[in-house]
C-alpha cells in the first residue's frame, strides 16, 4: 500500500462507524436507527477489506461476505419488527416502545 497508508483506510472506516453510531443515538425514528446500523456494519466491512488488501490475502473479502449475509438477515428481521411496531403503536418513535411487560 504505497500511496494510501493502511491507517488512512482505518480512519475512514472509523469515521463512518462513528457517524453511524451518532445517527443511532441521536435519531428517534426506528427506520433511521436501522439505517444507522447498516452504516456501522458497512464501516466494519471496510475495515476488513482494508486488512485483506494490506496483506494481499482473500480472508478479508471472505469475512466481508459473512458480514453481508449477517446484514441481510438483520435487516429482514428488523424491518419485519418495524412493520409490527408501526401496526401496533401507529408510530415509528422508539420512545413509544420503551416499556417492557415484566
Amino acid at each position: 500500500m504505497s500511496a494510501v497508508p493502511y491507517e488512512a483506510v482505518l480512519v475512514v472506516a472509523g469515521i463512518l462507524f462513528v457517524l453511524g453510531l451518532a445517527g443511532l443515538v441521536a435519531r428517534r425514528n426506528l427506520l433511521f436507527v436501522l439505517v444507522s446500523l447498516e452504516i456501522m456494519i458497512n464501516a466494519t466491512g471496510l475495515a476488513f477489506i482494508a486488512a485483506g488488501s494490506r496483506w494481499g490475502r482473500p480472508d478479508g473479502q471472505v469475512v466481508f461476505l459473512f458480514i453481508l449475509a449477517m446484514a441481510a438477515a438483520e435487516v429482514s428481521v428488523g424491518l419485519a419488527l418495524l412493520l409490527q411496531i408501526k401496526r401496533h403503536f401507529k408510530t415509528l418513535d422508539s420512545d413509544a416502545a420503551g416499556t417492557m411487560k415484566g
Partner: peptide, 25 residues
C-alpha cells in the same frame, strides 16, 4: 483497495437488495 468481488457485491446486495427492502417498507 483491490477487492473487486467485494465491490460488486456491495453494489448488488447492499445498494441493490437491502436498500430496496428499506424503500419497500
Amino acid at each position: 483497495l483491490g477487492a473487486p468481488l467485494a465491490a460488486a457485491l456491495e453494489v448488488i446486495i447492499y445498494a441493490g437488495a437491502i436498500v430496496v427492502l428499506f424503500v419497500f417498507v
